[in-house]
Design a protein around this nucleic acid. Sequence first.
RNA 1: GGGCGCUUAGCUCAGCGGCAAGAGCACCGCGAUUACACCGCGGUGGUCACAGGUUCGAAUCCUGUAGCGCUCACCA
Length: 1060
Amino acid sequence: MSSHGTGSTGAASAAHSSAPAPASSAKAGLGELAKSYSPKETESAVGEVWRSANAFRAEPAGIGPRGNAEPYCIFIPPPNVTAALHLGHALNNTLQDVLTRAHRMMGQNTLWMPGTDHAGIATQTVVEKRLLQQGKRRTDFTREEFIAKVQEWKDEYEATIISQLEAMGSSCDFSRTRFTMDPVCAAAVREAFFRLFKDGLIYRGYRLVNWDPVSRTALADDEVEMEEVKGHMWYLRYPLEDGSGHVTVATTRPETMLGDSAVAMNPKDPRAAALRGKRVKLPIVGRVIPIVEDDYVVLPAELAQQVGADASDPKAAFATGFLKVTPAHDPNDWEIGQRHGLKAINVMAEDATISDRHGWEDVSDEARAFLGLSREEARKRIVQWFRDAGLLEKAREYDHSVGHSYRSHVPIEPYLSEQWYVKVTDDRLAGAAIRAMAPDQVDGAPAALQRGGPASGDGELRFWPERYAKTFQMWHENIRDWCISRQLWWGHRIPVWVAPESAAQHAVLAPFVKSGRVSEMVHSGKRFVCVRREGDREAIQSLEANGFTQDSDVLDTWFSSALWPLSTLGWPDPAAAGLEPNLLATFNPSDVLCTAREIITLWVSRMVMFNRYFTPDHHLPFRDVFIHAMIQDGYGQKMSKSLGNGVDPRDIIHSHGADAMRFTLVQMTTNTQDVRMPVDMIDPHSGEVFAPATIRTSAGHTVADATQVSPKDPSKRMVSGYGFASGVATPTDAMPLARNTSSKFDLGRNFCNKLWNATRFALSNLSAGVGDPVPVSELPLVDRWIIARLHRTMHTVEDALASYRFNEYAEALYDFVWRDFCDWYLEAIKPTVKQDARQRRTLRTVLDASLRMLHPICPFVTETLWPHVQATGEAGLPGIKLPPSATLALADWPSIACSVEDESAAALFERTQAIVNAIRNKRGERQVQPKKRIRLQAPSEILALVQASEGIVESLCGLESVGELVPGSAPPADGVPFAFEGREVVLSGLVDAVDVGAERIRLEKTIADRERQISGFRGKLDNAGYIAKAKPELVEETKAKLAEAEADLAAARRLLAALA
RNA sequence: GGGCGCUUAGCUCAGCGGCAAGAGCACCGCGAUUACACCGCGGUGGUCACAGGUUCGAAUCCUGUAGCGCUCACCA
């Protein structure tokens, strides 16, 4: 089919020869472009063109050729280094690149800041998993040794990710690439922590956290996954202390009863009066605990109705009205405990085994038997104990959802511990985030908006699509303080040193505090000292000499991510970080953040809070937030690194090319929430595409089986992407890794090929020279029409881009290039362009402008074609400016004046298209061979239209003659009549003999269609409400349509009569 | 339970108050014509999930129902 692999006359040689200086050295000519676009052979050369032109380097204000231009900046959502990028990232980054490239071409000083995220818990987990496969554990190494291993992993995947971004054509300023744990970012983290600590916004909190008993670390709320679990509801009897009876509590977690410190009941409960002041003797433990009254307790349905309380609470269905209160092991119980001054008795160790060493003191002999048991085992034995003691009232099956660690997948234990918190509930953080919202996107009474005065950034944050503003608002209205300490090794170590409080510390600390090098606080008998600078050895040595030790925990990853728009630009001091002093001021605030919706709470929120808090004028990190769709696999599951169902963009680049991938992704970016991407596999043994065999994981996900059998040869096998990502299967020479693909990308591939061939055709004509510019009014009709279409397309594209309607951008160009330019313009000019230099000027100009507008979506193919097109001579017409440029990536966006749009020419050409379509339709209906010439006879009004088309109707319809149809004269014997614009028109020479019966059926169908239309239009026009209330233009339009339909109907009836 | 979204041609999706509802793929017919078979020309195919309502006019707005998906919170 093409010259793949020959390299002799193909695109590869053309691109390679032009790579060092594409525009100047390229000699355009048909022979240089292969018959079809072969991305593999050109993409790397194009990448080299951009690299050698330093095309994506951004400089701060005042420096470089764009130093005085308005800045445009996007911060990449830093991909985490746990794994390679998948198609979700490809979508995310393609959209950012489209914006970046378009704004660069529009002349702005444009920075797309790239980098990666260390993803503390996730990365540590994948490395630990790999070590486990080698039979080793984290604790077999020192902290430093282990971190070095994680670092190795990070280096490998960081390089992979950057190379994936480059392969996709991402126009990031790679010279500024950052990593959230590099020294520049680490300095920002240190300063931010210090300031928050000093300002009282970081504090030590002793409370229940989400505890992962396997990983033995605290987790943030958003790191907990809810999973449906089949369990039981146990009804336990607790005897009253005075022996007068018992109360029954319902619980799913009987093992926590060892730590109960009260039983609660609702004060409205009819039984409350009798029980008020009584106490309960806790079985097994023997602890005597009070019965407290609290509104939180739900009454059982029957009682609720009796006292007129709300019985609709789902809990009412199984509640007993008595609630065991275990403050140390349940968040709600903790709240009740706080309200009633109850003790929190922690009965578990850090691994969630029953323990008497973490706050449980009154262990009875009977209870001692349960020490050391796991949660699950303790539950069984305690239930058995109650059953044996006759205190188990009943048990029933009960399904409920339980929080699980997204890391180890075991149930989370609400666990009492002391952690570091950021007080995000403070108005300076959450309040500032809500005040940032654009007022028209804030839901409900803007109470929050009224709290603060207008600061810069207030009211400026806008979500696209706007429905996501609600997510942002609700998150901040219900926000809870943020637990930021993690008991991990991989991450930013918390810069706090601690020692038991003592008077002697003052003398040591005073000078450091005074000079602002440290900040201190005292909490529960300990002194905590935050050291501002990592390099402050003097302060650290002094602290350590006085018995202080550094907190061994690290910070939540999102703490450093939250600083990304600041840290990447060198905050707090770019110069000290070795960067340009005004880098930060130039590019923060940035313009838009592109991300997925689950990131709104995790990251967008925190960036907004931190950027506003840390900048003196409280400005935003970005003004717009664009939320794009989530890419799902063919089974409706989110593509994710952890599930391993992601498709590597390099696979799609391999099968379809980077531009095809990009175009397709942009084209599918509507404002929907999810897009499905059915994934096929390519057999590495045969190259055949097939649907992979799937399995269901224990968690219920459908994924490609880890190994697959070759569809061609059952003796051969391969490893799937899932098999590789999950570590289940390792590719070998005999069992290689299979690439994925998806036929979805055919759309983009076909389009790129179409553009390639249209350009090839244009080049073959342009070699005759492009002529001097002439006013648009002097050009042939079809030229004036295509220029009008070009102008309108440019506006559609610009409007779409300005409001992030990416699919409209792609579709406007798809239709313009394929439908208007290829199907109509190129076909129409074929007979004339070789002789008409004016027309070649139009062709040159339209092609040039099209490549420019398409470049942000398809940078590789457009840049490859660019030097060939540039070499044909000057582009542009009066009103259309297309200044030359060596590289397309740095070329100007087209400038097209509205005055070039000739509306009457456009309208006339649209009538031309209509008659061409009508004639083609008649040919098609009769299966006339394309080569066969036919004759047209039409009344003078229609003949005038045909003549005005300047030969286009004749050439596009294969007409050998056009003649006047005199009214009343007999039509030719082989005449095929039809109605056009209410006139009778006859085609002849289509067939040897007219099939009168078939002709009658066609005419009768036309008559029926028109009659239906006419009755529709008349219905509207007879409706007084329509005449009175609809827009006048619309009424006029309807009248015109009615008239035309009536004329067509009359013509068809006359034709039918003549046929008989 | 709260929030968000989806349900339009066989498939994947646009359209979100006003032409006789669109695209790509698939399908059917004609076609190796000096850009392109990753192609050209023509065609088939839809009571726009269902039920009410608002309106001169509803796929489009409102209410309700059903199914699907995501997300947050929570269950003793």
